[in-house]
């Protein structure tokens, strides 16, 4: 098993660890927000949706904290090579994760209004894409915290499936709306929810790109197209 060795100044290690800890906390938080927001639609649970909306404040403040910590680390410790990329990566990923939080909050707000409508069984498709996106997000976070570029590449490639599923849901909802105009209000909301989930998937791929850059010092997009995987 691989083992890490300390930097000479132990405060430096503490700072880097602190970044990982905050990223892990923010990641865990937006993961919960994503799955809870989808669950609040599936279970028609507006209280849960309200909780997700509340959580977004914590996500925002965590992102600010990571930004500050990273900036201080750069100013005081002058990180080099991997440490530098790691610090930059932390800022970039925190930004993506904060956006994921916003999107999950958006879904939760939609959930509150959807739950006031009559019950129509459209939540299944949203549940499906939600599950897939949650897997993608978890995979991206695993790759980020473990600095696992292979895992990152794997998640990055699988984003195709999210897009495909989004298109399928889009067509499905369109059919419903054409069939019965009374469903338009609800269907339009579901469209936004699906779009938000698809966007969360995109942010997961952004995180993967950052991870790849942190580990290899190269941009994943260029590398992957060179290998014919793009």
């Amino acid at each position: 098993m691989q083992k890490l060795v300390d930097h000479i100044v132990s405060g430096y290690d503490d700072d880097l660890n602190q970044l990982t800890n905050s990223l892990s906390e923010l990641g865990g938080l937006v993961e919960t927000m994503t799955s809870d927001s989808v669950r609040s639609i599936k279970k028609r649970d507006s209280d849960l949706a309200q909780k997700v909306i509340e959580m977004d404040k914590r996500a925002n403040s965590l992102q600010e904290q990571i930004d500050d910590d990273a900036l201080r680390l750069m100013a005081l410790r002058h990180p080099m090579a991997t440490d530098l990329r790691r610090t930059i990566g932390a800022i970039r990923c925190a930004n993506d994760l904060e956006r994921v939080g916003d999107l999950a909050e958006g879904i939760a707000r939609r959930a509150v209004s959807i739950n006031q409508e009559d019950k129509i069984d459209l939540a299944k498709g949203v549940g499906r894409i939600g599950k897939l996106v949650k897997t993608q997000l978890s995979g991206a976070l695993d790759a980020l915290l473990r600095e696992d570029a292979d895992k990152a590449l794997q998640v990055w490639i699988a984003d195709e499936d999210v897009d495909e599923m989004y298109n399928a849901i889009f067509r499905e909802l369109l059919t419903y709306m054409m069939g019965d105009p009374r469903t338009i209000t609800a269907c339009a909301s579901f469209l936004f929810v699906a779009k938000n989930l698809e966007r969360i998937g995109d942010h997961a791929t952004n995180i993967c790109e950052s991870v790849y850059f942190t580990v290899h010092g190269k941009q994943l997009v260029n590398d992957a197209t060179l290998q014919g995987q793009g």
Partner: peptide, 17 residues
């Protein structure tokens, strides 16, 4: 926990609050 290297904070492997 899929621990790949020692010396990293536990939060690397467990995100649960």
């Amino acid at each position: 926990l899929e621990i790949t290297s020692l010396g990293r904070p536990l939060s690397t492997y467990v995100r649960e609050h």
